[in-house]
């Protein structure tokens, strides 16, 4: 894969001395996976932001006389350019629902990732920096979290509390902080022993100051990598929850929900699950490519 391209560093005998940031940027630019993934994400983000302008129809409008119109490339008398991707079982324009669905995926993915990122990073830094008892307690919390099945707990909690966008975001966010904590903990352990932390301590910096201005900047590359990967994880989780009927509630357009609605009809109209499924796959693939790429560029030692 293109992820390994950076291993062959060209000898730069007469090249000017570049700052570390510029070197990283040039690595990033030559990283095909990173650029391709970034481009796809950017496109999907723009589509999500400008959904009202781009969507050809109202995603909620049901036209029962135009149910299950196939996409244009189908050789069918019903296929029409008015509904490029066809319509669903309630006669709603599939392309418009797909476009609005990008908003839900990105919103939930990003918010859940922020929640889990804050929890995981704080726990990881404390465990890694203070060590000893604090580390023991936090490692215990991580182990406990890992031993509870995510999908099952999320479903149980949502079924009791009742589903809404906020509930889904919080439940996912509160469940997937483990990888943040694990990675940040070990990254902090490595930074903790370095000279600049010792000198900051010798200068009399307070502990919060050391954590924020000495440790944080030096582990942020790990945090960003995990953040992208966890955002993909959260998007997949939301889709699975919505698919099982306990995530985003109808009629909100969500890709997982679209696949769930199409499940009963897929034997006759396979494209109904192929369209939202491909969108979901592409988005998650793009985010993972960016995550892997960022790791290759900023923290290659984490690769495995």
């Amino acid at each position: 894969m293109s992820t390994l391209e950076n291993n062959s560093l060209e000898p730069m005998a007469d090249a000017p001395v570049l700052s570390p940031g510029k070197v990283m940027l040039s690595h990033a630019k030559s990283h095909r996976g990173l650029m391709l993934g970034g481009l796809v994400i950017l496109t999907i983000m723009l589509v999500a932001i400008f959904a009202p302008l781009l969507a050809p129809h109202d995603p909620y409008a049901q036209v029962l006389s135009r149910k299950l119109v196939p996409p244009v490339w189908f050789d069918s008398s019903k296929a029409t350019w008015d509904h490029i991707l066809g319509t669903d079982h309630l006669g709603r324009d599939y392309l418009s629902r797909l476009i609005y669905g990008a908003r839900i995926s990105l919103l939930i993915g990003f918010s859940a990732m922020l929640i889990s990122g804050v929890i995981g990073t704080v726990l990881g830094i404390c465990a890694g920096y203070f060590g000893g008892r604090v580390d023991m307690v936090i490692s215990f919390l991580i182990t406990t979290r890992l031993s509870m099945p995510v999908v099952l707990v999320a479903l149980a909690v949502i079924s009791i509390v009742g589903s809404s966008l906020t509930v889904v975001i919080w439940v996912i966010g509160l469940l997937i902080w483990d990888r943040f904590a694990v990675v940040v903990r070990s990254a902090t352990q490595q930074v903790r022993g370095l000279d600049f932390v010792a000198s900051a301590r010798a200068l009399g910096s307070s502990t919060p100051r050391i954590l924020f201005s000495e440790v944080m900047p030096n582990i942020s590359n790990h945090v960003i990598v995990i953040a992208t990967l966890e955002m993909a994880h959260a998007i997949l989780l939301e889709a699975a929850l919505s698919f099982l009927g306990l995530g985003v509630q109808p009629p909100t357009p969500s890709w997982g929900l679209m696949i769930s609605d199409a499940k009963g009809l897929m034997f006759f109209d396979g494209w109904l699950i192929a369209v939202p499924g491909t969108a979901l796959f592409l988005l998650v693939l793009a985010i993972n490519l960016v995550g892997d790429g960022l790791r290759d560029v900023t923290a290659p030692e984490d690769r495995n």
Binding site: M1, T3, L4, A232, L236, A239, A240, F243, G256, I259, K263, M266, F267, G270, I273, A274, G277, L280, F281, V284, L285, N288, L289, D292
Partner: peptide, 26 residues
């Protein structure tokens, strides 16, 4: 072969399992 294996890995991580299951079923 290494690239092929890595591609499988990257694709595998991005595929929603329920969608993969439904597609296989189809």
């Amino acid at each position: 072969l290494d690239r092929f294996a890595l591609t499988i890995a990257v694709v595998g991580q991005a595929m929603p399992s329920f969608w993969f299951g439904l597609t296989m079923m189809l």
